[in-house]
Write a protein that binds this DNA or RNA. Structure first.
Lengths: 144, 144
DNA sequence: TATTGTTATACTCTATAACTATA
DNA sequence: TATAGTTATAGAGTATAACAATA
């Protein structure tokens, strides 16, 4: 069916966003599966590699997850030797999550596959359109 | 934290899409809660009101849900007298889902609140930008 | 044989509250 | 008192397979 058979029955921006996200998420999940990663754990790994050295609290906010969910995600990555927890010396309550060498390596290879899957999903748009979409959607995603 | 404190750590289009969707979904869920609806059931109700007279199978494809999930959603709406199931005379396996008068009425009032919530979420963009976003995202959501 | 709807089940994800250690 | 992380648990959502009715 899809748009052609049924037409734009629902044209709410939020519905289109939800459906596009479902399409994109499915492709990313499939690309990550061979690496034992999911979109969530992949995102945590990405943040663990950032110069910002994020705490779990920051990861939770950035990914819009409950802190308790981040515990489980980091537990999993840590048990596989992909990230490490370090107590922040300036605030001993906080734990900074950093990627290991193995984590960085896995992220590099998995990331290539994710970007490939992304090119397929967003390939219906040309380069300029993708840039435009990124700019617009970023403002909705991070309304500062 | 958000973008300002942490910067654009992850700039994947798929990640931005996921986060924007989370923002939008949260607003829509909150707007629908007083009506006993969720984004999913609201979408089913919207489809049940369409001229297309969709079968459950078509609803499942359009919303990217498993047919068995549509059963549960329609069960709920039907038990509340908002939709009805009619056996399609041309294919007696299929069940067409149509909204009742009560369903149409609820959709009208709930829809107004959803659109209000949507204006808040997408209000960071001006009218032309929203139209552009809709056009771009529609092609990703329905790659025909 | 294939498809629509249905049921059942196991699994994942989500939401919430309570607890600890630090601040 | 408040915050970061953790644990536990219940609820919602998801995926899968099997089945009956119809094609």
């Amino acid at each position: 069916m899809a748009q052609t058979t049924m037409g734009a029955v629902i044209d709410d921006l939020s519905f289109l966003l939800a459906r596009a996200n479902a399409v994109s998420l499915e492709a990313a999940s499939a690309a990550l599966r061979p690496f034992g990663l999911k979109p969530r754990s992949y995102s945590v790994l990405a943040l663990a590699l950032s110069d910002h050295r994020p705490s779990q609290r920051e990861i939770a906010e950035y990914l819009r997850l409950d802190p308790s969910q981040v515990v489980a995600l980091v537990d999993d990555l840590q048990s596989r030797g992909l990230v490490e927890r370090e107590t922040d010396p300036s605030d001993r309550r906080a734990k900074v999550v950093t990627a290991t060498v193995d984590g960085a390596r896995l992220f590099a290879t998995a990331g290539a596959r994710v970007r490939q899957a992304e090119r397929e999903v967003f390939g219906v748009l040309d380069e300029a359109e993708r840039a435009m979409l990124r700019k617009l959607i970023d403002r909705v995603a991070f309304p500062d």
